[in-house]
Design a protein around this nucleic acid. Sequence first.
RNA 1: GGAAAUGUGGCUGAGUGGUUUAAGGCACUUGUUUCGAAAACAAGCGACGGAGCAAUCCGUCCGUUGGUUCAAAUCCAACCAUUUCCGCCA
Length: 423
Amino acid sequence: MLDIKFIRENSDIIKQATLKKHLNFDVDELVAVDSKRLEILKVVEDLRSQQNTASEAIAKAQNDERNGLIDSMRRVKDDLKFKEEELEEVMKKWRALMLAVPNIPDMSVPEGSSDTDNIEVKTWGTIPTFPFKPLDHIELMEKQDMVDFERGTKTAGFRGYFLKNDGAMLEMAVWQYAMSRWQNKGFTPMLVPSLVKRETLLGSGYLPQGEDDLYKDGNDYLAGTGEVATMFYHSDETLDAQSLPKKYIVWSPCFRKEAGSHGKDVKGLVRVHEFYKCEQVVLCEANHETSVKYHEEITRNAEEMMEELGLAYHTVANCGGDLGLGQVKKYDIEVWMPSQEKYRETHSASYFHDFQTRRLNIRYKDSEGKLRYAHSLNNTAAATPRLITAIIENYQQADGTIKVPDVLVPFMGGKTIIGKSVI
RNA sequence: GGAAAUGUGGCUGAGUGGUUUAAGGCACUUGUUUCGAAAACAAGCGACGGAGCAAUCCGUCCGUUGGUUCAAAUCCAACCAUUUCCGCCA
């Protein structure tokens, strides 16, 4: 959501944003609807003012005078009702359009329509070479009894899975490693609801346009990311400016229908309907430079974790067409997957300015005592099981066992090698 | 899931149809006083939208959404939340 005043005065900027994000949105229509809204609102407010004045007079008047006033107010009431209905019609349209206004992408966001136009901004690590034919994570995990897809689909349907033995333990080790790692950086750990109300998803900007990718029952939805509940946590609050930035490291189950991705990653654990994620969420003061600073910081946090894990990755700046409605700029971190011989997304870091906090009404009082909408950002910390597929493939050994990355050993009860040799 | 009670500003709390423009208190801000503070006294003290250069003015907001009425914090309905009890459950 953007400020309607800003939209009115800067419709050209909105038009450019719409083009850059490859969206269909008619800002001229919104501006026209808004003019209509203000015009009717003026009439309604004048009638209400009349009513308020008359109401006072009626309270004091007696007999005939009183009856006469009441009669004339009856007509005002009818007019008001008619105008209010007209206003409600316009407001419906207005609200729907307001939710569709895209946020303005940063100047530095590359042009382009899809992820193939994203631009690599960094690479790290050496792409591993194996003196044997490397296996994919599916084979590796099945050989070591770390996963059961057959019973997974029997139980949960397409993309269902069970993690077993060190498959289960490795996943939990990653969570613990990530949660404590970010806690040490000053982030507040939280476990947050995945079962959430519709308004939470409107607040973070996933709805109304993302309906098809969400599991739901009536007004109850399963969130696709912990960001949703975490952002809603502070909705309708005025934060203490001293408490900014607020940094959260959040663990939650995540549910995604993956609508529109049938045929992609149909096997394995790279794309599943139910997964778990440690997510970084930041609220900071309303200032572009501050947003950029924390955007770089939460991106770097994740890159450092990948470096600690010893996983080769690159970071891309997402192009305009690959940005969400509310995102100003986004970096994806993509890990090298030996079986696919390409990079696959593990992290997505974006900032929103006040797009989300306007919807959620999250404000703070700045140093001049003025109420302002905070800025918000988020990035993945560790999304599993996708991340463990990368670990497993990159750390596989000739005999089919899997070396545990050093930083995870303490979280695996001291275990350094997963599995028995299967040669 | 069933029953009952409750829902008013940052907090507390009055208000059950018309000077309520939401009393009073606490907290907060400023001033007077003081070497300084406390206390006392005085004044101020919400958000959002609109008009205006401005002073200021208008409108909306008493859990939410509708309804009744010339007029709703107040009456009615539904919903939501909280508390207590029962049922169920990890």
